[in-house]
Amino acid sequence: MQRRDFLKVTLAGPALGRLPPEGEAHSRQEEAPTRLVVDLTVNGLAQRVEVDARATLLDTLRHRLGLTGTKKGCDHGQCGACTVLIGGRRVLSCLTLVAAVRKPATTIEGLEKEGVLHPVQQAFIDQDALQCGYCTPGQILSAIACIEEGHAETRAAIQEYMSGNLCRCAAYPHIFAAIEQARPLMLKG
C-alpha cells in the first residue's frame, strides 16, 4: 500500500505541518492559502502541479491538467459524474484532495489504448447508453470498476452497484445493457 514513489507532496508556501495557534479557537490568523507541489500519475503519465491545498482532484484534472472529460455535477459526492479510478478503485474526485492522492489515477481520457476503445466505451456506443453524455465518463469508469469488483453478475447487482451514478437523461436501461455486453469481453481479455 505504501506506493510513495508515485507521489510526493512538497511545500510551495508557508511551513508545512505548522501547529495551530493555541487558545485562539475561532480567530483565523491569516487566510493565505497553502501552496503545495503535488506529483501524481494520471493515465500513466507523471505530472507535477502546484496547487492550493484546497484543490480537489476534480478541479485539478479539469483546470490544471486540461483533462475536462471528468465532469462536475454536484461537487458534493451526490451524482457520480466525477468518478475516476485511483489505484484501480472507483472514487469521487470531487471529494478527493489532490494532495491526498497516493496512487495512479485513471480518467476517461486514459481508457483508449492505441486507438482502440475500451470494451465498456464500445458497449456504451453500441447500446446507445447515453444521451447528453455529461454523466457518461463517470458512468463508464464506474462500470469498469463495477465489473472488476464482481458486482455485475446480475442485472439486479448492476443496478444496485451503479446507483451512485445519476443520469438525468435516464439512459439507465441502456447502461445496464452496455455493462452486460462488456462484462464477458473484459473478463476474457
Partner: peptide
Amino acid sequence: RAFAYIRADSTDSALRGMGSPT
C-alpha cells in the same frame, strides 16, 4: 477556508499534528 495540509505517517505524528486542542 484555507488550511495547511500535512500527512501523518504514524499515530504519534498524527497526535503531534493535532497539538493540544481546547
